[in-house]
Write a protein that binds this DNA or RNA. Structure first.
Lengths: 196, 196
DNA sequence: AGAAAATATCGAGATAGTCTCAAGTTTTCA
DNA sequence: TGAAAACTTGAGACTATCTCGATATTTTCT
């Protein structure tokens, strides 16, 4: 559906541009249908291009994912910023977390990559993940200040919960993800730990 | 360390028995060090055996895992039964969940297999996973009866939480797993949802 | 326009992993 | 001891990742 972001830098040769876009389109379709581990070789084939061409444009699988998801993740961060004005800080947080989980679920198996990317500075997805993490931190900080979540809940906790819930959702027929996320978020709440 | 369970059925030829055990030993070491996705070919090599021999003994990777973990999972189920007499039903549940998470962490990447196995009747690990699920259900039922957990929390929720927390723990440098499990379990508690 | 320069593409090849199976070897036991 | 049963072997058929020199296409410059 979505053909990805425009050219990376400078100007590309016309044929390169064409191939770049075709690869992105096919990759999006293949990943959506078969998961983020789908064969790059097959994607090149489907795009009518030699696999060397694919590697020329996207040296790593992560580079391809970044091209596919960069914008989307920035958008998610922006949504987080908007939810900073939600009536209830906790609800804003919860709403955003749900959106983030849905986002992670776009390609099966994406969670692993996203979890690694936030710690690995050399990952092409690092910046995007950091932006998401930061958005989460802000929502969390607000809810914390309002006394709605426990003071010891951190942004990495939230990030991990989102990805873990997405992961669980992928593994089970009735989407366990939603439930897990809800339980986790409830565990974040102040009320759950009066005596600790 | 642990060489796995004894022969499967009837009696094996002496050399077969030797190879079977050697494979189990090497697999345990390799999985422990490199994760449950480690190359079966390499395991056969390390065991000084042709790869056809490995496949002869263990038709699938899951079969190998079952041989490696079957007992251990039964033991986990037994631990669950014992914790049924814990002073506090919730603490019994929490203690067991922690043990289950540690158990899942024995080989990196095991969680995926365990989540699939519980739904897939054809998996060699299905029975073992069911036993674990059942143990969880009993602990949960007791805590529910005692009014310590929300009435809508199910055994699959618990199972998913345990595996998801183990998964998260594997992806992050500071072991996020423990924290996630705690938050999730707190989310299971009755007190967290008075008004819902 | 024409040719040189810059930029891309191609696809074979090196490496590695999964899984199968016909042919050969070892063990068992009557 | 020797034949039948039980195992092992390793090559072979696939699939995937990633690299690189040869080849082709596009752009640029005069």
């Amino acid at each position: 559906m979505n053909a990805g972001t425009p050219p990376p830098r400078r100007r590309m040769r016309a044929d390169a541009q064409r191939n770049y876009e075709r690869l992105l389109t096919e990759a999006a379709a293949a990943f959506a249908e078969h998961g983020a581990d789908f064969s790059l070789e097959a994607i090149a084939r489907r795009a009518g291009v030699a696999n060397g061409t694919l590697y020329g444009h996207f040296p790593t699988r992560r580079a391809l994912l970044e091209a596919l998801m960069g914008d989307r993740m920035q958008a998610l961060a922006a949504t987080g910023a908007e939810l900073l004005t939600a009536r209830s800080p906790f609800d804003g947080l919860a709403t955003w977390a749900r959106a983030a989980m849905v986002h992670t679920t776009i390609y099966r198996g994406l969670g692993v990559t996203l979890m690694q990317a936030v710690e690995d500075e050399t990952s092409e997805l690092h910046a995007a993940c950091k932006a998401v993490l930061t958005a989460g931190e802000e929502l969390l900080a607000r809810a914390r200040t309002a006394g709605e979540v426990r003071p010891d809940v951190t942004a990495p906790d939230l990030y991990a919960l989102i990805n873990a819930a997405a992961w669980a959702g992928e593994q089970s027929s009735p989407p366990q993800g939603e439930r897990l996320l809800t339980f986790g978020l409830d565990g974040f709440r102040t009320s759950a730990t009066d005596r600790e």
